[in-house]
Design a protein around this nucleic acid. Structure first.
Length: 270
DNA sequence: AGGTTGACCTGGACGC
DNA sequence: TGCGTCCAGGTCAACC
């Protein structure tokens, strides 16, 4: 499931392959829930536009465009659970569940493929779309501590809250809490400053390491070339229910928290 | 208003 | 073999 490292990997890969190309033609699938802007508007804005830059903001991929009229525009892609953004030759057969195909001036196609259809495409302005929330890789120590100060929710639920921090999902929430030695159910407001600073460090380390390894390939995540990442080999608790903790040997426990499967070591995390 | 829960989706794993 | 059931989770709406 694409979280910050996976989205960053895809955005960078797509950027390198499509920058400065023009969108010649747009096809969309007509599956209504995939499109947060009307499909006709997406086609109208994209067709003829030049792609200036592709980057990640939170879990959203943002393509900055210059329209043929000279106006700026933004194409927003959210991968949801199973969304894939692929740069392929038109000769390669369209995968099942393809929902958008952008034919580019360089000869390739930018394709959005999404089996489970939790992904979303739109041409809204980013400011109108992105809520509050801070990037975990750049947030200061004081700002990080302040985020959780008065939150009476479990720390894991707070980590998943995109209006606090951008880009953390189920895998990296569990992995960072394990590395910081904090139980997922602890109330956020009751964590000490020292614990929160350890969590900030753990989160930054996990995210940076995962970006270096091209993300975690669970479900059907792949990068812009269809290549899988390797961080899933570094998971210490996520999906390791019943297996021995890599630090103390106690079996990893699984509970449900905030409606999500949550994995932790009952010995190492207090 | 902060916090919590369920709906949306479908492929894959599992049990009988 | 084949069918039914359950599970995965990012986000949003609806509720408490």
């Amino acid at each position: 499931m694409p979280e910050l490292p996976e989205v960053e990997t895809v955005a960078n890969g797509v950027h390198d392959r499509v920058q400065n190309q023009r969108i010649l033609e747009v096809w969309t699938s007509g599956k209504p829930q995939t499109f947060k802007s009307p499909e006709s508007e997406i086609a109208e804005v994209l067709t003829g536009s030049a792609i200036d830059r592709v980057r990640r903001v939170g879990k959203t991929i943002v393509a900055s465009l210059t329209r043929s009229t000279g106006e700026p525009a933004e194409f927003l892609i959210h991968l949801g659970m199973t969304g894939r953004l692929l740069v392929s030759s038109p000769d390669v057969a369209l995968p099942p569940h393809t929902h958008a195909v952008l034919t580019l001036s360089g000869g390739n196609q930018l394709r959005f493929v999404d089996a489970r259809r939790f992904g979303r495409l739109s041409v809204r302005q980013l400011e109108a779309y992105a809520g509050p929330g801070t990037e975990p890789l750049t947030i200061s120590e004081d700002d990080f501590v302040a985020l959780f100060k008065h939150r009476r929710t479990p720390i894991k639920a707070a980590l998943l809250n995109q209006s606090l921090l951008h880009g953390v999902g189920n895998i990296y929430a569990d992995e960072s809490l394990f590395r910081a030695g904090i139980r997922p159910r602890r109330q956020a407001a009751r964590l000490t400053r020292r614990e929160l600073l350890a969590l900030r460090e753990a989160l930054r380390e996990v995210l940076r390491h995962a970006i270096q390894l091209g993300g975690s390939s669970v479900s059907d995540y792949v990068d812009a070339d269809g290549v899988r990442g390797f961080f899933q080999l570094e998971h210490r608790v996520y999906m390791r229910t019943g297996q021995p903790c890599l630090v103390c040997g106690k079996p990893i426990k699984k509970i449900t928290l905030a409606g999500r499967s949550t994995h932790f070591c009952p010995q190492c995390q207090c």
